[in-house]
Simulated assay, not measured.
Amino acid sequence: MSMLVVESSPWSENDFGIPYPTYFHPAKDADVFSWQDRMRKLERKWLFSFAGGPRPGDSKSIRGHIIDQCKKSELGKLLECQLSEQSECHSPSRVMQMFQSSLFCLQPQGDSFTRRSAFDSMLAGCIPVFFHPASAYVQYTWHLPKEYEKYSVFIPEDDIRGGNVSIEERLSQISAEEVKMTREEVISLIPRLIYADPRSKLETLRDAFDVAVEAVIDRVTRLRRDIMEGGSVEDSEEKNS
């Protein structure tokens, strides 16, 4: 059985990570193209931003360090999430507005290795900054490039935890040309990360559902061929990544 889940285990042979659903469910190709053009033209006044709350009960969490750096930086924007119903993080428009105004979006671990925010930020054309490989690089291998530096920035958790890295300084060192190329890669990935309105069908683009179904069919075909030829049936792109 092949299981499609929003967060997979790289040590499992049968479950495969697919993108978290975002707020955008286009009905036709033109909706996607229009969105991508808009994301390219937006003015992004913040160097980086973070939407999330601290994890005071988790000694391994780096969220407190990230929140502190956001508060101290004039180039960083923070949307601090609270447990109350009135938290701004519960407002899709506030979250997406911040992501659309940022060059980089910080994506530390959430309650698990990854978080929905990573896909919301890429939908906004914001370059994700990951701090743990399991947040994206060892899953979503059907939807994201294996060459992770093409669409993201990686800063090791230990560097943040030890106070060895200034996020502002690290991101400021990336040239404007490199930022432009990386952002364009993120924007080009948008069709593969969104789920189209199920009442319609995209004409030329493949959404996250199409990509996943084609990958499962291809996997089953290869497994059947291996069985017929008497070869090994082990197959785990995510484990190998």
Rank of each mutant, 00 (worst) to 15 (best):
Gly230Val: 01
Met96Pro: 12
Phe24Asp: 03
Arg225Thr: 14
Cys81Ile: 12
Phe48Val: 00
Cys89Pro: 03
Ser241Asp: 06
Phe131Val: 00
Ser112Val: 15
Arg170Met: 11
Gly76His: 06
Ile127Asn: 09
His25Gly: 01
Pro92Arg: 07
Gly76Phe: 03
Glu80Thr: 09
Val216His: 03
Arg224Ser: 14
Lys45Phe: 11
Ile217Lys: 07
Phe33Ile: 11
Arg116Thr: 15
Asp68Pro: 06
Pro198Tyr: 04
Arg55Val: 07
Arg40Gln: 15
Val138Gly: 00
Asp207Thr: 07
Arg115Ile: 14
Gly64Asn: 01
Lys180Leu: 10
Met228His: 14
Ser12Lys: 09
Thr22Ala: 11
Gln100Met: 13
Glu178Trp: 08
Ser241Ala: 10
Asp31Trp: 04
Glu157Cys: 06
Leu78Gly: 06
Met181Asn: 04
Phe131Tyr: 15
Arg38Asn: 12
Leu42Glu: 15
His90Glu: 11
Leu193Asp: 08
Ile62Gly: 03
Pro156Trp: 03
Met39Tyr: 05
Arg170His: 08
Ser2Thr: 07
Ala30Thr: 08
Glu237Pro: 08
Ile174Ser: 00
Pro21Ser: 03
Glu238Asp: 15
Lys77Val: 04
His132Gln: 11
Lys201Ala: 02
Leu223Arg: 07
Asp31Phe: 02
Leu47Ile: 02
Gln139Trp: 08
Ile194Gly: 04
Phe16Ile: 15
Ile174Phe: 00
Gly64Tyr: 01
Ser34Gln: 12
Val186Leu: 02
Glu168Trp: 06
Ser93Lys: 06
Glu184Thr: 06
Asp37Phe: 12
Arg206Ser: 04
Val138Ser: 07
Ile67Thr: 04
Asp15Met: 09
Ile190Val: 14
Asp58Gly: 03
Glu43Phe: 09
His132Phe: 14
Tyr148Lys: 10
Tyr137Asp: 10
Lys77Asn: 07
Leu205Tyr: 01
Ser73Ile: 05
Tyr195Leu: 08
Met96Arg: 05
Gly17Tyr: 05
Glu234Ala: 02
Arg219Gly: 11
Asn240His: 09
Ile67Ala: 03
Phe48Glu: 00
Leu42Ala: 09
Gln100Glu: 15
Asp58Asn: 14
Thr221Lys: 09
Ser241Phe: 04
Ser101Tyr: 11
Gly52Thr: 13
Ser12Gly: 05
Lys71Thr: 14
Met122Leu: 12
Pro26Asp: 04
Thr204Arg: 06
Val129Asp: 11
Glu88Arg: 11
Tyr195Trp: 02
Ser34Ala: 13
Arg115Phe: 02
Asp210Leu: 01
Val220Cys: 14
Gly52Leu: 10
Val233Phe: 10
Ile160Thr: 07
Phe104Met: 14
Glu184Val: 11
Pro108Gly: 11
Gln173Lys: 08
Leu42His: 12
Met228Lys: 06
Ser91Trp: 02
Ile66Val: 12
Pro21Thr: 05
Ser61Phe: 08
